[in-house]
Simulated scan of single mutants.
Amino acid sequence: MPEHYTAGHLPHAQNIPHQDLRSKLTLLNQNHPVITYCNKGVTGNATQNILINHNFKNVYNLSGGFQFYDATKDE
């Protein structure tokens, strides 16, 4: 959701909503590392699977989503 991205995101992140990902795969380089994430973690995992199934090589998911990352980044 755009409001989640606006509220906070990782540096250099691109906001590509899950439902739009398949039509925007050409915006991403299959050989560059990609980190997927969402607000809470579920959609980020699904997005990771889409990329892997489309032959992306280095795909990682931010477990727990941005909320967990933001709450624990300084620990």
Results as ranks from 00 to 15, higher is better:
residue 3 E to Y: 13
residue 27 L to Y: 12
residue 49 N to D: 08
residue 70 D to Q: 14
residue 33 P to Q: 10
residue 53 N to D: 13
residue 44 G to S: 04
residue 28 L to G: 08
residue 25 L to T: 06
residue 12 H to T: 08
residue 39 N to V: 00
residue 2 P to C: 08
residue 34 V to D: 02
residue 21 L to F: 03
residue 40 K to P: 00
residue 11 P to W: 00
residue 5 Y to R: 09
residue 28 L to C: 07
residue 45 N to D: 05
residue 49 N to Q: 10
residue 2 P to N: 15
residue 9 H to T: 07
residue 65 G to S: 03
residue 60 Y to R: 10
residue 10 L to C: 04
residue 9 H to C: 10
residue 31 N to Q: 15
residue 66 F to P: 01
residue 57 K to E: 08
residue 5 Y to N: 12
residue 16 I to H: 07
residue 3 E to R: 11
residue 31 N to Y: 10
residue 64 G to D: 01
residue 2 P to Q: 14
residue 58 N to K: 14
residue 69 Y to F: 14
residue 37 Y to S: 01
residue 46 A to K: 15
residue 7 A to F: 11
residue 7 A to L: 10
residue 4 H to R: 09
residue 3 E to W: 14
residue 47 T to Q: 09
residue 39 N to T: 03
residue 31 N to H: 15
residue 23 S to A: 15
residue 69 Y to S: 01
residue 17 P to K: 11
residue 31 N to D: 15
residue 23 S to Q: 13
residue 60 Y to S: 12
residue 4 H to V: 11
residue 73 K to N: 07
residue 7 A to I: 03
residue 32 H to R: 13
residue 58 N to D: 14
residue 71 A to V: 02
residue 61 N to T: 12
residue 54 H to Q: 09
residue 2 P to E: 13
residue 60 Y to M: 11
residue 58 N to I: 12
residue 42 V to P: 00
residue 10 L to Y: 09
residue 25 L to I: 08
residue 8 G to M: 04
residue 8 G to C: 04
residue 7 A to S: 15
residue 73 K to S: 06
residue 10 L to K: 09
residue 73 K to F: 06
residue 38 C to P: 09
residue 50 I to V: 14
residue 54 H to C: 02
